Amino acid sequence: MGFDDIVGKGKALYEEHKETIEDAVKSDQAEDISDKLLDGVADFAKKVAPGAADAIDDVRDNVDKAVGNE
């Protein structure tokens, strides 16, 4: 099975379950998990690049808007 076959199967599965996936991404559970994950990644990034804290917070907030329900 080649890469194109795997990508094709992934696309087909996504299309078949698109509504369920979108509902899951916008759920309360996804919001809780994404907040914890994004906070951890942002905190780590601030330790590595403390001068970029504002930009890191902006990126974190933009990503958070795309996942969950808040």
Rank of each mutant, 00 (worst) to 15 (best):
V7E: 06
E31L: 08
I21D: 13
E70K: 14
Q29L: 13
T20K: 15
N62Y: 03
V48W: 01
D58P: 00
Y14D: 08
N69T: 08
E22R: 14
V41A: 07
A42Y: 09
V41L: 11
K36R: 09
D39I: 04
V63C: 01
P50R: 03
K18S: 14
V63A: 01
V48F: 01
E31A: 10
A12K: 13
A45D: 00
D61H: 04
G68L: 09
A30T: 08
L38H: 10
N62I: 00
A24C: 05
E70Y: 03
R60L: 02
D28I: 05
A52G: 13
E70H: 10
A42I: 08
V63G: 00
A12L: 10
G40T: 05
T20G: 10
T20V: 12
A42T: 08
K46A: 03
A45Q: 05
V7F: 08
A49M: 04
E19G: 15
A42D: 05
A52V: 01
S34F: 07
I33N: 07
S34V: 04
T20F: 07
D57P: 05
K46Y: 04
I56T: 02
A49R: 00
K46N: 07
G10Y: 08
A66C: 02
A30V: 05
A52I: 00
D57Q: 10
D58Q: 12
A52R: 10
A42K: 07
A24S: 11
E19V: 15
I33R: 09
A45E: 01
S27W: 04
A53G: 14
A12M: 08
T20N: 10
D5S: 08
Q29G: 06
V7W: 02
A53I: 06
